[in-house]
Design a protein around this nucleic acid. Structure first.
Length: 104
DNA sequence: CTAATGACTCGTA
DNA sequence: TTACGAGCCATTA
């Protein structure tokens, strides 16, 4: 799989995350692993940093609910506008966590 | 080919 | 609560 295709797969999945729901980098990597065969949270993070501008990147957070460093303010504002369950630091992944299986 | 890097994650202290 | 270390794997140098 070429880098461009891999990036495309990540962005495609991120676009499917419904408003008010979130996925962790690890969850995206895991869901994508079934499709591409290999993935890691670090790769998803790097891809979002480089090519995340065209997708709802604020719906992808760390496993602990923290928002991406350097974009916490903007991500929090967007999530709040979507009605996501915001916690003190970031988002409540336990209730807002989403998976592709759930959205089929 | 080897080494460093990163929007990560998890276990320990 | 924060801090560190080890594992992670494609990309870059």
């Amino acid at each position: 799989m070429t880098p461009d295709e891999y990036v495309e797969a990540v962005l495609d999945l991120v676009e499917r995350i419904p408003p008010g729901r979130v996925m962790s980098y690890g969850a995206v990597a895991d869901a994508l692993a079934a499709r591409s065969g290999r993935a890691s949270a670090r790769l998803v993070g790097s891809i979002m940093a480089r090519h995340g501008g065209a997708v709802p990147w604020h719906r992808v957070v760390t496993a602990s609910g923290r928002l991406p460093p350097g974009h916490e303010r903007e991500a929090r504002a967007r999530l709040r506008a979507e009605g996501a369950p915001l916690r003190g630091e970031g988002v409540d992944v336990r209730s807002a966590g989403w998976s592709p299986e759930e959205g089929m």
